[in-house]
Every structure is written in structure tokens, then in C-alpha cells.
Design a protein around this nucleic acid. Sequence first.
DNA 1: GTTCCGCATGAATCGATAG
DNA 2: ACTATCGATTCATGCGGAA
Lengths: 286, 286
Amino acid sequence: MEITAKLILGDCTKELKKLEEDSIDLIFTSPPYADQRKNTYGGIHPNKYVEWFLPISEELSRVLKPTGTFVLNIKERVVNGERHTYVMELILGMRKQGWLWTEEFIWCKKNSYPGKWPNRFRDSWERLLQFNKNNKFKMFQDAVKVPMGDWAKTRLRKLSPTDKIRDESKVGSGFGKNVSNWLGRDKVYPTNVLHLATECNNKNHSAVFPESLPEWFIKLFTEQGDWVLDPFMGSGTTIRVAQKLQRHSIGIEIQPHYYNMVSSEIQPKRYYLLDKKKNRYEINRN
Amino acid sequence: MEITAKLILGDCTKELKKLEEDSIDLIFTSPPYADQRKNTYGGIHPNKYVEWFLPISEELSRVLKPTGTFVLNIKERVVNGERHTYVMELILGMRKQGWLWTEEFIWCKKNSYPGKWPNRFRDSWERLLQFNKNNKFKMFQDAVKVPMGDWAKTRLRKLSPTDKIRDESKVGSGFGKNVSNWLGRDKVYPTNVLHLATECNNKNHSAVFPESLPEWFIKLFTEQGDWVLDPFMGSGTTIRVAQKLQRHSIGIEIQPHYYNMVSSEIQPKRYYLLDKKKNRYEINRN
DNA sequence: GTTCCGCATGAATCGATAG
DNA sequence: ACTATCGATTCATGCGGAA
């Protein structure tokens, strides 16, 4: 199996137009926050943020498959002691473009940026907005199951024989029936809150988010061989993870510095062979 | 010292008008979510939510002191597979009224409502929106400091309401029972993410949020003798905590059932004496 | 006195069915 | 076509009684 990673140097407002429509399964990106990264994209002023982004989201809608998902990592800045409203206005604007605002996940950053202010605490969470073109979209929930809470160890350890037998006899409570289903089960579905630490010790590139963040969404919304797009590639975290998980990827970056860095690291094509024993693809080292 | 708890039976859209202006230090409330609790306030349809709430927030602005804070606990419902936008529209509407949207805290609920759907995970967080009339407001950050270190973090997160209830005598010292463990440990400021479990069905009253939620904000935004208002009192959690922490309180509730329940539990006036040894007020049992 | 187990039940949401 | 009601699904926790 051949997995492609296509890197593009350029402004995504222009480069996106060259991509084929209905071709992407997942867009995962963290655009430059308002007034951050001043050199990039001219350092968008919070008040101009929405009008800058809407043409981009329009193009993203064009390239996304009808069953695809767009995950946007964003957080509003504080302006004059107040949270700015550009994220809310962006959601409202994108809905007018036809996007569905399906869900808002929360990323709780375990080690948030340090600091102390008289009127606020450290900001320790970010939004992960899920948008879709259609209310039928691809989702692979089993791929992101998590270990069950501690309560299970103590409480489900010993189940009386009656509980196991009760299966169909007592449908009334509904609980007894399901308890037996949970025996031997150690994983449950996650919630819409993600607890991940920020990576701080990566020397080569300062990624805005840890690899586990795109990893979670790539596993959730795509399968092997699907296409992942990051229009604001930056240090290439999304692309790197996509390749690792054997998804095709396209990354667009405006800054040559980042583009060159990622280019030197990512192979444009990688080949995987089906290992029949393990029943999965393994990288072909030849 | 005399601490008042004033309970009002009635519709807050009317009752708020009778309150004195610039008299409240903290408003903490959890209004009925759109189309939930159908018996209360007629079960407001998501599309009508903003126009229903804005007149109320207008009155809340009137009664709040210029240095006061309004904390609103709210979450949007899913309508047609999409998160509804009434919360965002509410924030935008309140800003037009002159409110400042200072901050958004996240309440992560460890035990969220169960369920499984093909297109979403369980909803495990709620918003706590902080609004102010002025960018100079009262805030007592030291009152909510938490112990440092991983040990303390996990401990804090796992603290069940019972753990706290067991030692209610040590009012104001945080989470009673474990305080001794924290002696000698450095304390740090918290972040804008709160990890609390919802109180499951208590035998007496099913509160929508645990006591530790209003407790945290009451400690953060008020001092002893200040005034706390909850215009949607419900089972009276906010009022109960305010009284425990020796803040005056006003609770408004439209349903006689709840009003009577809280009335039977809360003393309209409670007297505290200054214990000079401990340098704090203790309840006068005479 | 602890620890352990059984039971009930939540600010929910989807899809099918009925009016 | 559009709205109202109902059953199925699922995990963490408090409470009360038992070991």
C-alpha cells in the first residue's frame, strides 16, 4: 500500500482552490490565532478574523467529502480584559455557509501556560469545533475507546452468579441485563472532553498541540487510506501523525521555514506491506 | 454577625424588579436549559431562549454592584444533530446590553449522563460564563488556591461530595478532611477548568450541580458579609453554600415545591460570633 | 467500625413510530 | 412534510444493608 504526504508551500487561501472537490475525509487544523504569530498571514486582528477565515472555510467545504469532518482547534484571545467574540461569530458565519456545527470538544491542557494575572486564572483549555457538511458522516468510535474507570475494578470484580444469569429474566431494571455484558470488558467510549498534556520538550519544532490530539481525531473520523488535510500545517504535527497512521495527507504552509523543515522530515511516499500474521500493514523498510 | 437568607417565591422576571440596584456582589445561577425541565418556565424552546433570557439579564445588570460578577452555568442542547447556537447568541446579546464577557470556565463532569449514539459521545462538560459590568471587579484568588503536585490533582479530582460532607465543621478551610494532608505543601492558583462530579440523586433533593461548584465561585468573587443572588434557586444549592460561607443570599424560585423545600431547610437569619482564638466567625448555637 | 455489594438514576440523544 | 412521544443505549456514583 502506498501512502502519500503532499506538502504545499503557499497561502492556503489560494492553494486550496487547486485541490479537487469532495476529496478529503478529515480536515484537522489549528489556524494562527488572532494577533498571534504576527509575521504569518499578516497577523490578523481579532476584529478582522472572521472575514479573513470565512473564505477559507468556504474552500474547505468544497474539498471535503460529504461524509467528511472538519475539526477546528481554536480559542479566543483576551482583548481589553474580555474574551473576544470572533470564535462565536465564526461559528455563526460558517453555519450560514452551510456547515453544521455538530459538536464542541474540550481539550483540557494538563500543563497549561504559566502566568499570573489579577483578574483571571491560567487558560487551561481549548475548543475543538467539529463541523460537518451532512449529518451523516463517517465515525469510528471503537477506535478511540478508553480504559474503564477505577470504579469497575472494585465493583465488578465479583458478581454474584444470579447477576450473570439474570440476563433476560428481569428486564425491568435493565441494569442486571447489562452487567453481564460488562464482564470482561475493560474499555468504554470516551466523552467529549480530552485530557492531554501539551508537549513542551520537543526541541526541533514548537508544535501548538501534542501528537495525541490529531491522532485521536484521525482515528475517530478516518480509516486507513483516507485523506487528511491541514491547511495551516505549521510544524507538521497533523501530517506526521496521519502518515504514521497510514492516512494520505496534504499540508499547506505559507512560511518557507516550516515548509522546509517538514519537507526534510516527511517522505512524500511511504510503502506499507500487509503482514498477514499480524493482519495489518507494516512499513516496508526496503 | 447576622447573615440573611431571603427566599422569594415567584417569577424572577418580575421579582428581580423589586430588588435594589447595585446591591449584589455575586450572581450565581443555572437557569433551566432550553426545553429541559419542562414544568418550569414552560420549557423554553431553544429558538426562543435568547429573547426569554435577555430581559432577565438586563435586570441582573441593574441589581449587580459595579464591582460584582455574574456567573452563568449553561450548555447548549443538540437540535437536529447539531449544537444549537442560543448560548452564543445569548453572549452576543448580553454584550449589547453592556455586559463584559470576561471569561469562560469549563466544568468537567466526571460522571456524565450515559448513552451511546452513532454520531457523538457523551456530553461531559458545561460552560460557566463569567460576566462583569466593569473590568475592575472583586476577585479573591488566594481563597481558591489548590495544593500543588500530581498527587493533589488526582486527589482533588476524585474527591466525592461525601468526603466533603463528612467534615463540614471546618467551614472555609477547603475540603475539610484532607486539609491536614496538605499542610506543608505549596499551594498554587487553579486554572479555568473545574473537575467536579455531579451529585447523583441525593435522597433529599436532586441538585443540578454539586455544592463545590457555587462554593468555588463564592469564595473567588465574594468575602464574608457580601450578597449572593440566585434567580433560579431550584433546590437551593447556591443559597445553602452562601449561608455556610457566611454570605447574605437571595434566592428566587417559581415552583412552590422547591420554594417550600428550601424554606424548611434554610434559616432566614443566622448569627455568627467572632471566635478570637481562631480569628473567624463561628455559628452561635444559642 | 470498615469494606463490599445491589440497586437506582441522572441538564442526554437518536431513530422509529404515530398523529 | 412536520411535530410529538417512546424505547434503547450507557457509565459513574450515592445510599443502604450485609459480611
